[in-house]
Amino acid sequence: MRVLLAEDEKSLSRALVALLEKNNYSVDVVYDGEEALSYLEAGNYDVLVLDIMMPKMDGLTVLRRLREKGNSVPVLMLTAKSEVSDKVLGLDMGANDYLTKPFSTQELMARIRAVTRSQTGQTTSRLSFGNIVLDQTTFELSSPVGSFRLANKEYQVMELLMRNPRQLIPTERFLERIWGYDSEVELNVVWVYISYLRKKLSALEASIQIKVTRNAGYSLEELP
């Protein structure tokens, strides 16, 4: 999943980026409200973690403009304020959830998982297709015969496939969602991770496969 983090406190931003990347998220970070809106217009994000108190444009204004443009990306608001009125205002303006600083890292990750699940209609943290299950909390890919704990990019590639079964996903989309728009990574790196995942699916005796469509992309399909 791809996260946009809008937080002007640099030390906290660094800590949150490290936490999110450790939990297999791709993260872009911005430090003011105007930059947040710019990134949201150009990027495709699964969730926005948005601080209220930011320079140039505060988080509530960012949220209002975002919703006015019809952008429904899940938004988790962060603030040092604990007043009920601020929470109510943020939720009424379209925030999906609210977290007051200081917060525990476990609670932050749980709330991010919750707002992204509600957006996609998921009821649990487990994605399944065929006899394969991908656990979004433990990062394990499993079947009745065993399991593998996936590394960061492997997990993100598999998650994108599992969220979009039977859909052709262009190679460029993998690069944009996992490595980022500004990445200089070449297209063939996607094939490297697809190859890793194919071997794991084979070892798990999967009833599904990653299908390659030449010069187009990849899709997750049931075995014939």
Rank of each mutant, 00 (worst) to 15 (best):
M1H: 10
M1A: 14
V3C: 09
A6W: 03
E7S: 12
K10F: 03
S11F: 14
L12W: 06
E21A: 05
E21D: 13
N24M: 01
S26G: 04
S26E: 08
S26V: 00
V29D: 03
E34A: 15
A36W: 02
L37A: 00
S38P: 13
D46L: 14
V47Q: 07
L48G: 09
L48Y: 09
M54P: 07
M57E: 06
D58Y: 07
R64L: 11
R64D: 09
R67P: 12
G70D: 13
G70M: 12
S72I: 10
V73E: 11
P74Q: 04
L76Y: 12
M77D: 04
T79V: 05
A80Y: 02
E83S: 01
S85G: 07
D86W: 11
V88G: 08
D97M: 09
Y98L: 02
L99F: 08
K101T: 07
T105F: 11
Q106A: 11
E107N: 08
M109T: 10
R117Q: 10
Q119V: 15
T123A: 12
T123W: 15
S125A: 14
G130P: 13
I132V: 14
V133W: 09
L141K: 13
S143N: 09
S147L: 08
L150E: 07
K153E: 06
Q156Y: 05
M162S: 03
N164L: 03
N164T: 02
R166M: 11
E172V: 01
E172H: 07
R173T: 07
I178Y: 08
G180E: 13
E186N: 07
N188F: 06
W191M: 00
V192E: 06
V192T: 08
S202G: 00
L204W: 01
E205T: 05
A206H: 00
Q209G: 11
N215A: 13
L220F: 01
L220W: 12
L223K: 07
